[in-house]
Amino acid sequence: MHVSLPIAGTSINIFILLGMGGGVGFLSGLFGVGGGFLMTPLLIFVGIPAPVAVATGANQIVASSVSGVLAHWRRGNVDFPMGLILLAGGVVGSSFGVWLFSLLQQLGQIDLVIKLSYVVFLGIIGGLMFVESVGALLRRGRAGPPRRRQHNRLQGLPFKMRFRKSRLYISALLPLAVGFVVGVLAAIMGVGGGFVMVPAMIYLIGMPTSVMVGTSLFQIIFVTANTTFLQATMNHTVDIVLAVILLIGGVIGAQFGARVGAKLNGEQLRVLLALMVIAVCVKLGYELVIPPADLYSIHGG
């Protein structure tokens, strides 16, 4: 059964889209990540124009992060002051990102920038995660996890603030900058940015893991909402029909994923996730290097 997508301008089998939503939802439930970094490349792969895939991906992440943050909020795992500062940076960053997106679209380089961003960030994150999780697997049973909270020079910048939930007294400029960078990425890559935000929270800001995911999700809601709104008004690239179909699949998939994930071992899960991130990175990178099937393209591709 085909469904015609009003903004993407193509018609695609609805079961393929439901399956993709379900599959990515399953993985996001399993690994506890948003899954935007998988969804956007998949959408491009099945023939959705890259700008629509990115904008619609941001819209879908609004939903998954709302449901995620509610669960964390009930357990008191959201550091709101920290979230608001990350958010302030994020709103500026995502606005700048959408403007940059529009500019790159006119220059005809948006596809390249989207793919390059994916290759670079997925490569870094996937590589670090793989090394860290394999290390943890090998260390298991010996010593406890290494202590991650260390002080660095960035935390000592001016405008120091106290964050009670995170048990930190650091410069507000640091989360502001992290929020900005993640906001730009969210707009350009159509992701929530959790996979960049989470390592930055641990290694740069020094937040405890307990409040990390909830706080990250809290600010992702607003950053992706801002991205969705700006993409819709500036670039007309948000496809509501596509977003709703992906949502339905995603919500159901996430439930199953979370249940399966609860039965599996944490380090093994992280190795699997790292391998998946690296696989997506290698595939996208390979496509940039091999000669394209047709050197010429229209639609800014």
Binding site: N59, V62, S64, A225, F229, T233, I240
Partner: peptide, 20 residues
Amino acid sequence: APAYGAMAIVIAAIAGWLAS
């Protein structure tokens, strides 16, 4: 476009809340 963008966000937020 602004109304459409707002609608997209509201739909997603409601869907997320329902899911939770």
